[in-house]
């Protein structure tokens, strides 16, 4: 009989979407195809467990790994990289089941550019006024680190990062590399701002060069495409990118697969289906073979 399809070797990055929705969770029939949980993506390489953001989607990830570890005394290590600390990217953390297990070890990485320390922010959301269990009462070992080195090595996986310019309060993009394969996670950034008349040509070119260099030839780019072109003008300054701008930049950077992420909370599944069709037409018109899709909860890809 066949082998299990799960990739447990250290040659492949297994990417799973646990939460794809932006801003606030949106449960309901109209959003169940693409999902209503806020951002969380896991990347597994053998026994190395990397998590990108801790939106409400992290709860289901926690339940799954908790189910797998029942009866095992082995230490489970998780590495959580936060793009930033807005609610939708951290609010699932108190519900991450492994935090209540003594054999779990979680390292949280985030920007050091915060005016307040990262640990204070995470502790704040578990203050007694907001949550019954404090951060210091968790059974798991928690290590919160503001990123100090340019590159973080986790076994064979190399993680590098850059601060992003266009999001209120700032945000970080991450690139995970393994054996020449690259996953880029670049959510919560308003790339449309690059084309504002207030941005000088020189500044625009510098930003673009930096962005393209970071995402270039990514095997998968998971990126913020919250708004349509028509919606964007009313949401300018909110920190999110419009879909056509994202697609065109991904094409320019010769990305292999573009997973549009951080879906607008008002966006229904049927509307995403329509946007997907239009996006595919845009790519086809430009003669590209880039794979385009809207990230969907419960989907796992092997990179």
């Amino acid at each position: 009989m066949p082998q299990e399809g799960s990739v447990k070797d250290r040659q492949t990055m297994e990417v799973t979407f646990w939460g794809t929705r932006g801003s606030i969770s949106t449960p309901g029939r109209g959003t169940e195809k693409y999902g209503g949980n806020t951002p969380c993506v896991s990347v597994t390489v053998g026994d190395i467990q990397i998590i990108l953001d801790a939106g409400t989607g992290i709860r289901n990830l926690g339940l799954e790994v908790d189910g797998e570890s029942i009866g095992k005394e082995k230490i489970s290590r998780f590495h959580l990289f936060l793009s930033h600390t807005h609610w939708d990217h951290i609010q699932g953390l108190p519900f991450f089941q492994p935090l209540y297990e003594p054999h779990a070890h979680l390292t949280v990485y985030g920007s050091r550019k915060k005016g307040r320390f990262l640990s204070s922010i995470l502790k704040g959301q578990m203050d007694v006024d907001y949550f019954p269990i404090g951060l210091s009462e968790l059974a798991a070992t928690l290590d919160i680190q503001e990123i100090s080195s340019r590159v973080i090595r986790l076994g064979p996986v190399m993680v590098d990062w850059e601060e992003q310019s266009f999001h209120p309060g700032g945000s970080v993009r991450y690139r995970l590399s393994l054996n020449g394969k690259k996953i880029v996670y670049a959510t919560d950034v308003e790339l449309d701002r690059l084309y504002e008349p207030t941005i000088s040509k020189r500044e625009r070119e510098a930003h673009l060069k930096r962005y393209i260099k970071f995402v270039e030839n990514a095997d998968i780019l998971i990126a913020d495409g919250q708004y349509t072109e028509e919606e964007y003008p009313k949401k300018a300054g909110w920190g999110h990118t419009s879909i056509p701008v994202l697609i065109d930049l991904a094409l320019q950077a010769q990305v292999r697969q573009l997973a549009i992420f951080h879906h607008d909370p008002r966006r229904l599944d049927a509307e995403i289906d329509d946007l997907w069709r239009m996006g595919l037409e845009r790519i086809k018109a430009k003669g590209s073979h880039m794979t385009l899709f809207w990230a969907r909860e419960g989907m796992t890809l092997a990179i």
């Binding site: 066949p2 082998q3 297994e14 794979t291 899709f293 969907r296 909860e297 419960g298 796992t300 890809l301």
Partner: peptide, 21 residues
């Protein structure tokens, strides 16, 4: 659905997946 290491892959709505609800 989960791919079992097939030669030509498993695709859901045109996207190659390892596993997908």
């Amino acid at each position: 659905i989960e791919d079992l290491g097939s030669t030509n892959g498993t695709f859901v709505n045109g996207v190659q997946v390892l596993r997908c609800v």
